[in-house]
């Protein structure tokens, strides 16, 4: 076995389904006999997690340039807020994880998903302004128009915002940011770094 670094293309045989489980970039044929590749890339064999009932090694195809990436529930995204309304904010998803995405996806952050505590006291306009860059987590695929996002965790929220004077602000607490030029304080749901 070992880790082959064999280049495969979609439709090529990776192994028998009795010996291997299909991981990312692979699938099992309808008759359940063979595992085939579904992407172009390098064939890798990964050991199964020790507590898994299925102890077959997992065969996957990786290494292709990161295309075909779409927002998945549970993944972290970076988005730019486009509209702030009474009960929700719209944002353009520009990065999936740390990688930028070629074309934006649309996301919305609903009032109840902005923070984890005191949800009934949340004020939309004290959390986000249009143009803010936020780090959020994908809650679900949402509806036809947008993915549902949430910033209800300490490390999620605004990571960059401009003051009314058009200058990047400095965070002074988890709810306040200050303009370095005018000294004016604005309210945001600020993301926590490190810790």
């Amino acid at each position: 076995m070992g880790n082959d670094t064999e280049l495969v293309t979609p439709g090529e045989k990776l192994g028998r389904a009795s010996e291997f489980k299909a991981g990312r970039g692979a699938y099992v044929s309808p008759d359940n006999l063979t595992v085939y590749a579904s992407l172009t890339g390098l064939r890798h064999i990964v050991s199964p997690p020790p507590d898994s009932p299925d102890q077959r090694p997992i065969v996957e195809v990786t290494g292709h340039k990161a295309h075909g990436a779409i927002p998945e529930p549970g993944s972290i995204v970076i988005a730019r807020v486009t509209k702030v309304m009474a009960r929700m904010a719209s944002a353009d998803i520009m990065c999936l994880g740390t990688k930028s995405v070629r074309e934006n996806f649309t996301g919305i952050i609903r009032l109840q998903d902005i923070r984890a505590t005191e949800i009934d006291k949340v004020d939309m306009h004290k959390s986000f302004h249009p143009g803010d860059i936020v780090r959020a987590i994908v809650l679900s695929l949402g509806d036809a128009r947008a993915y549902f996002l949430s910033t209800a965790k300490n490390e999620l929220g605004v990571i960059s915002a401009q003051s009314a004077a058009g200058v990047p602000m400095v965070a002074i607490s988890w709810t306040e940011m200050q303009c370095p030029i005018t000294g004016q304080i604005e309210h945001r749901k600020v993301a926590k770094v490190g810790g």
């Binding site: 293309t9 992407l39 295309h67 075909g68």
Partner: peptide, 11 residues
Amino acid sequence: LADAGIMMYDL
């Protein structure tokens, strides 16, 4: 499609 990394059953 293969160049774009779209998952396919086969070429």
